[in-house]
Amino acid sequence: MSLAEERQRKTSARNGWLLSAPALILLTLAASGPLLVVLVYSFLEKGQYGNVLWDFSTDGWTGILFSRDIFDDTLKLADAHLTIFWRSVKLSFLTTIITFLLGFPTAWFIATRTPAHRAIWLFLITIPFWTNLLIRTFAIGEILRSEGLINTALIRLGIIDQPIQMLYNDGAVLVGMAYVYLPLMVLPLYSAIERFDMRLLEAGYDLFASRMQVLRHIILPIVKPGIIAGSILVFVPSLGAYVTPRILGGGKNMMIGNFIELQFGQGRNWPLGAALSMTLLVVVTVALLFYVRTLGKGGSGGGHG
């Protein structure tokens, strides 16, 4: 490239940046402004009535893991908090696993239909998205509750005579989240499987691989980007889930989202709520960075021959 061309290219690039500057500034402010408020609040003293006092304090951050003894003022590990974190991570992880186990065969089924049928199946998969999350979650509750669909059916069939308590426990939350987030797993898996060259299956069988070996050594490694994308798309919102654990888990089975809400409401501890929010954000960001990096590395994996 000649010097003049180079200069020309740089100028036009600079003009491009200048033109988009207003939009970029707005975006930056809109994205980082509220975050900045949250960050600042996490380092302030909590107020008596839920507001904040403008004094520097790290109590919000220590409050994540420790609680102060009301008598001797010593710090102790806050078991209740740890239980909530552990439940959040556990349920999100299990949700990811369940949606994968259900979503993979579903995505495979759709991707192996004729193109015209694929569109119909994909549409069916996304239908729940058109319905309000609250309504969907209540619908699950309606199915699970003591006088609900399942219990009524089982009693009528004479299989049980007392309704089984299925609502307001971790299992109910899991069912609800798996249902709500399943499409987020199916769609990226579908797009990875759709690009998968089915002729590789025959090559695998020809080279003495059993069905399980073909799955493990050919299909899974090649659709890995789709698996990672789906897992993160399910795991991240699961971790911050609020509506589902609230409605299906009852008051006791809190997840991080409910816990944060509690701090800004009845708990009246805004700094702790802010610190918890920041922590969640960091965890999610790390997960996304991991995702982007693996995609960058394995990007050529999905290509065709």
């Binding site: 025959e202 090559a203 020809d206 003495f208 691989a209 994996g301 021959g305």
Partner: peptide, 20 residues
Amino acid sequence: LPPNRRPVNTVFQSYALFPH
């Protein structure tokens, strides 16, 4: 017999090499 149990191998027209 299924293909993975036949002592026969194939060179495919599309090669079908494993991209990963």
